[in-house]
Nucleic acid binder design. Structure first.
Lengths: 149, 149
DNA sequence: TGGCAAGTAAAGCCAGGGCTACACTTCTGT
DNA sequence: ACAGAAGTGTAGCCCTGGCTTTACTTGCCA
């Protein structure tokens, strides 16, 4: 097991996985902000910087910076002193994120994690769940729901 | 549902979860490096900066910086031009990380994720799995293994 | 033993994501 | 109608974690 030729854990050719993990983390924040803005628009009709900031637990300049990134990425639009709105692309992202979050929480609960813990952990986990894994989660949930009946 | 007093998704009191996710990510890199150094020591008897760098997929200076952080945190020691070694604390951390990684991969596989995908996703996921969730994973795995028999 | 390759370190750059402090709009209430 | 409060924007700073370049050790080998 201390053999670096071992095929299941060959270490000499693994940097990609770390790179992928790093890249995933790079978009994580954007996803959170997009989702949050979507929530706010749905609830209040608009998303104000101050509201975004307080919900994200950051100061407003930080929120402003994040929104600037979203705008740069074409996910949001805003006019000075007006609310922030999602583009079509941004709204689609928010929807995807929301759905994924729900799936992750459901899966955690399905394998026995307490709901509160599941909600908390999902916030960090969800950004690293690949599409393939998400599909597997959905299948598993569908199956275990069927088994329950 | 546009009511911000709703208890299941009360948004005005949720910043902590984001803060927790951010904090988790802060130690993620350290964990990866500690684990990698542990692997290298086990395999080659010592961990050289160059080896660490190539396995992590970064340049040497980046690895040097990371090792400096590990030393600052009391997880590793090193002397110039000699290898890097883990302190007791660092070794314990590496073991925990390794065990957690295995559990996460196993759980993913257990719910139907292909092994290769599981390995890849686990790298990002593992750092966000709380102790409580990890326990739940272990229980689930124990149960499903028993069911298999 | 002298020189060169490999390993290591240090410095300086970038971007991201926090922060505080301060300036400026917008809104609101008298 | 205007002043002050609330909201927003901007500047400048810190730290992390990448990067490249450059300089210095070390150690090995001819």
């Amino acid at each position: 097991m201390t053999n670096d030729q071992d095929q299941t854990s060959n270490p000499t050719a693994q940097p990609e996985r770390f790179n992928q993990a790093r890249a995933a983390q790079a978009v994580a924040i954007l996803e959170d902000y997009a989702e949050m803005i979507g929530d706010l628009i749905e609830e209040m009709g608009e998303a104000r910087i101050t509201d975004i900031a307080s919900r994200m637990g950051v100061t407003h300049p930080t929120a402003t910076k994040a929104v600037a990134r979203l705008k740069r990425e074409g996910l949001a639009v805003s006019r000075p002193y007006r609310g922030v709105f999602l583009t079509e692309e941004g709204a689609a992202l928010a929807d995807r994120v929301r759905a994924r979050h729900r799936t992750v929480v459901d899966l955690l609960v399905a394998v026995g994690v307490p709901l509160a813990t599941a909600e908390l952990d999902a916030e960090g986990l969800e950004h690293h769940v690949s599409d393939a894994t998400l599909e597997a989660f959905d299948s598993f949930l569908a199956k275990s729901r069927k088994d329950q009946d």
